[in-house]
């Protein structure tokens, strides 16, 4: 037993330990730098909890007098999300087809497809909405187009990946039968990507439902307009009513999308 006392034990070798310290130091430095140089008034920070509690106190109880117009705006929000998802799904099909490595007709198409995907994905829905509100004026159409533009990138990317993962063997068999390119796609590729297609579309619909709730804040229709109006006029009890409605909407969306997924797949 006494022998073991001469053994030294450390969890990490010195090099490992050094690496861990360096990483930890670097993280700490970055955080300290951010904390030190950020442009905030620290009194406000200490004051923040009080302000939040105060705001919350003004929100209860929720005021349901405006419920009919809130529900109407909610219905509009659902429509924006659903119609935009439907159109985006259709438009994303050719994009996915040309940006999947195994189906793209040529390299030029591949790069065009990838360019569409990257530009659509990198710009957030709200920024798209800002642009389309400037073009089409405030209203639902700017919202639908904004959601659509953002969704094409998401759907196209995931669908393209699904196409890249298909089993090539049936394709070979169909080609050996003398089927044309289009028929090979219809019989060999479409059935194989069908489950992924539904799963991705449902997922995006769920996301779009959430995104549609904020479009109104930049003037692009839906429940966000009512929220913005209530906030601007300091009607906090109506604000909390709108927030509760959004919460219900989002949770309902999640329930619907998970049941659809189970039913279809």
């Amino acid at each position: 037993m006494t022998q073991t006392l001469t053994h030294e034990w450390a969890r990490f070798t010195p090099v490992q330990r050094m690496k861990r310290y360096v990483a930890l130091m670097a993280v700490t430095l970055v955080v300290v730098w951010a904390l030190g140089s950020i442009d905030v008034i620290w009194e406000w920070v200490w004051d923040a909890p009080i302000q939040l509690v105060d705001l919350f106190a003004r929100m209860v109880p929720p005021d349901p007098t405006n419920l009919p117009s809130i529900l109407e705006a909610t219905w509009q929000t659902i429509n924006i999300a659903t119609i935009a998802t439907m159109i985006a799904v259709v438009l994303s099909l050719p994009v996915a087809y040309i940006s999947a490595q195994n189906t793209t007709p040529n390299v030029v198409c591949l790069w065009i497809g990838r360019f569409i995907l990257v530009s659509s994905r990198s710009v957030n829905t709200i920024i798209w909405a800002l642009l389309f509100v400037a073009i089409f004026g405030p209203g639902i159409i700017a919202g639908i187009i904004a959601i659509m533009f953002r969704s094409i990138g998401f759907l196209g990317k995931l669908l393209g990946e699904a196409i890249e993962e298909i089993d090539h063997a049936p394709i070979e068999a169909l080609e050996a039968c003398g089927a044309s390119r289009f028929k090979v796609v219809m019989y060999g590729i479409v059935p194989q990507v069908m489950p992924a297609f539904f799963a991705i579309s449902i997922l995006r619909w769920d996301i779009n439902l959430r995104e549609s709730t904020v479009l109104g804040l930049v003037g692009a229709g839906g429940i966000g307009i009512i929220l913005q109006g209530a906030i601007d006029t300091f009607q906090w009890q109506e604000v909390s009513m709108v927030l509760l409605t959004i919460l219900a909407l989002v949770i309902a969306g999640e329930v619907i999308s998970s049941t659809m997924r189970k039913k279809l797949l």
Binding site: P170, A173, Y187, G188, P191, Q192
Partner: peptide
């Protein structure tokens, strides 16, 4: 074909 190469779905 050896692995049948049917379209499973």
């Amino acid at each position: 074909f050896q692995s049948f190469n049917l379209v499973d779905r």
